[in-house]
Simulated scan of single mutants.
Amino acid sequence: MQDLKTRTRDIKRTELAVAAFDLMVRHGYDALTVEELAKGVGVSRATFFRYLGSKDEVAVAAMVEPTSAFAAAFADATSSQSLWDRIRAAFEPSVTSAEADAERVRARILMVRDHPELGDRLRRARMEQIERLVDEMVEQGEGRFAAEMVAAAAVALLDRCISRWAETTGQTLAALLDEAFAELSSRLGPRR
């Protein structure tokens, strides 16, 4: 468990990132300098760099859940469920959060889509989440190789569903993800 100082720093970092990312979505990623972002969120340039370091880091901090989020939700899933159902349950907090603020999340995702360098940074940040999920799966009895393949495929599926959801209307992210997991599960078969 993190100490109070680390948690407080993480909260401040996330708050700054969310505010700065909202400014970038409104005004354009390329339209704002780091100095303008810092001023826009009410901090000095030095404070901005202490917490975030770069404009790309703003996107990562604002959009990627804590590294342990998927692993913790997977650990809480009922062990009697299939592996696919437990992984789907691991994504539920992210889905709920995205749908609760759908317009904002869609705008962020579309901005990332238009800036490939941000997508690359987000994919690298996802790797830590995948590794933590793999570790939890191994702890629950999965072989490491199988856990690595399943976790990577599942997170790629999540990210593809999020992109598709951002580009369309009329279907919830939860329904889209459920449909994708059902398709994957039917083709690969259930795993316990």
Rank of each mutant, 00 (worst) to 15 (best):
M63Q: 02
K55F: 10
M137W: 05
E103G: 14
E142R: 10
E136M: 13
E36D: 12
V95W: 00
V58A: 01
W165Y: 08
L37I: 08
I11M: 11
D3I: 08
Q171A: 14
R126D: 14
S186Y: 03
I130M: 10
F49G: 05
A125Q: 09
T33W: 00
A146D: 14
A154K: 04
F70L: 15
E35I: 09
K39D: 15
D85P: 05
D56W: 01
Q171G: 09
D114G: 14
E35F: 03
M111A: 09
E117N: 00
Q140V: 05
M24P: 05
R108Y: 01
D114F: 00
A102R: 02
D56E: 15
E99S: 08
A71N: 02
L83G: 04
S163L: 10
C161I: 02
R7N: 10
R187W: 08
Q2V: 13
E92Q: 13
A62R: 00
A180V: 04
L188N: 11
E117Q: 00
I11S: 10
D85K: 13
S163K: 01
R124K: 12
C161A: 15
V34W: 03
A72S: 11
D135F: 11
V18I: 14
V134C: 08
A146L: 13
D85H: 10
D101M: 05
L110Y: 04
G119P: 06
D135H: 11
E15P: 05
I87C: 02
R124Y: 04
C161Q: 07
L177E: 02
S44I: 06
D30T: 09
A151S: 14
R191S: 12
R126H: 12
A100G: 15
A147E: 03
R121H: 06
G40Q: 03
A153D: 12
